[in-house]
């Protein structure tokens, strides 16, 4: 087995996450898809760290996790706020900012 299999798996997961972002309308699911993309990136970082033989990739993956946690906190708070005013979690619903 080649080490690039990890990277290809990462690419596949990232693609699936991107399609999820584009297709799903429930804001929470969209958020989960974003998380999936972040995780795919993390996998690539970890695999590259191993291929290159140093720990920096793992450190970056660690930072990605922290930032993702922060992003989830704020993003979910926004979703809750929007839901409160519009009674809906659809991402197409808040579309007033347009032409």
């Amino acid at each position: 087995m080649n080490p690039e299999n990890y990277i290809i798996l990462s690419g596949v997961l990232f693609t699936i996450g991107a399609i999820g972002v584009l297709v799903r309308r429930n804001a929470i699911v969209v958020f989960m898809s974003v998380e999936l993309m972040l995780n795919a990136a993390n996998l690539a970082f970890v695999a590259f760290a191993r291929i290159n033989g140093n720990l920096d990739g793992q450190v970056v993956a660690f930072f990605v996790m922290v930032v993702a946690a922060a992003e989830v906190v704020v993003g979910l708070a926004i979703i809750v706020t929007v839901f409160r005013s519009r009674r809906s979690a659809s991402i197409d619903e808040p579309n007033l900012l347009k032409y």
Partner: peptide
């Protein structure tokens, strides 16, 4: 990625 990594050798993390 596949194109870039063809024949890549893995150093491994045992050392670090």
């Amino acid at each position: 990625i596949a194109n870039a990594l063809v024949g890549a050798q893995m150093v491994g993390l045992d050392g670090p």
